[in-house]
Design a protein around this nucleic acid. Sequence first.
DNA 1: CTACTATTCAAACGATCGTTTGACTGTGGA
DNA 2: TCCACAGTCAAACGATCGTTTGAATAGTAG
Lengths: 208, 208
Amino acid sequence: MRTVQPNFSTKERILGVAETLFARHGFAGASLRQVTAAAKVNLAAVNYHFGSKESLIEEVFRRRLDELNRHRLAALAAVDSKPDRRLEDVLDAFIRPALEQSMDSAGGAAFVRVLARAYAEHDERLRKFLSDNYGHVLRDFAAAFAQLLPHLDKEELYWRLDIVAGALTYAMADFGMIKRKNDVSEHSHREQAAQHLVRFAAAGLRAE
Amino acid sequence: MRTVQPNFSTKERILGVAETLFARHGFAGASLRQVTAAAKVNLAAVNYHFGSKESLIEEVFRRRLDELNRHRLAALAAVDSKPDRRLEDVLDAFIRPALEQSMDSAGGAAFVRVLARAYAEHDERLRKFLSDNYGHVLRDFAAAFAQLLPHLDKEELYWRLDIVAGALTYAMADFGMIKRKNDVSEHSHREQAAQHLVRFAAAGLRAE
DNA sequence: CTACTATTCAAACGATCGTTTGACTGTGGA
DNA sequence: TCCACAGTCAAACGATCGTTTGAATAGTAG
């Protein structure tokens, strides 16, 4: 695995390395000394460029979440404009950008694990930050789903979307028991995960 | 919240407090000094009774996993003996014990978060430990599901069970965006989560 | 060239980490 | 009564943590 991108700026190298190390060892488990050593920058560079470890963590999130939210909303808008919307299309608009980011060669896979870890950390500060960045996206998708699933009241719908988000988080972070076989590339492994997920979620959302 | 159980032994108090603090701050984030202070025992007690922090973590898992697995297998056996098995019954045997443990008054709720956190930690050592304790249970359930879902081949089935486990983990750990309303008890909140989960998962497993 | 700003660097700060030590306390059996 | 042993305790160990400092080093505008 490539841990350093030599021709990138100090700030970018720190962000990239921090992403993979936070994914692997957690926010408390990955020290700034590990990060700066792997990024081949001085220890003080983190506090110089980001102010604190806490701010570095937020910056790692902001960089990817802005991109993910943009892609998701664009995909949703594309689906919205079509005359015959299918449930699977909206689901795909929600799931595929996350999948694609998790296959991005430059640390995107790591970020999905960081995101899952943030959920697990259960830190109120981080949750508020995520809710501020994610909230309106989830609401837009909920509205799209609501149109396609008129038999579900609002609360029922939110429960089910919560389940979908959970399964997606879990699957994309590669938590599962299913071991990727050696003759299957990581790319096609995730592609399979996405397809199974969309089919499963579509059936679950339509239930009853 | 009650953090200390004064009439319990030192070992039991450490286990109980460690469970809630690991759930709240992670394994690296919760220090032995925090644990021993909250448990009102001496700092050295952890290394005396458990040997190391790592062993304490394993013991926290073992205590609850043994119980959870026993309940799950018992519930599965009860379903197995009935003549007309329904998919929802097997799902319930898988989901309900986890739910009930997460509602257990004495720290069970904390443990479910610890479990979710362990998934996120992605530590190979912990994963092996979990696989050793969980593996055969998952296999038994897979066999039961396989009988009820003959249209799914083995790989497809495992993918879907993985999704179910992910959604369960996520839901039980209370990661979701859905805020529990003030007029709903935590008990009935989790009961609702379980019901939504069973219905959603049943439809997802039956899909196609 | 000079003056100024931005960045990098080695070194050190105090705090906290997991662990170990050795003395002290209490209890039960010989 | 005395011994042995399990348990508890305060204190300290070396290691590592996030952060700060002040000097060294570009890079740039006047």
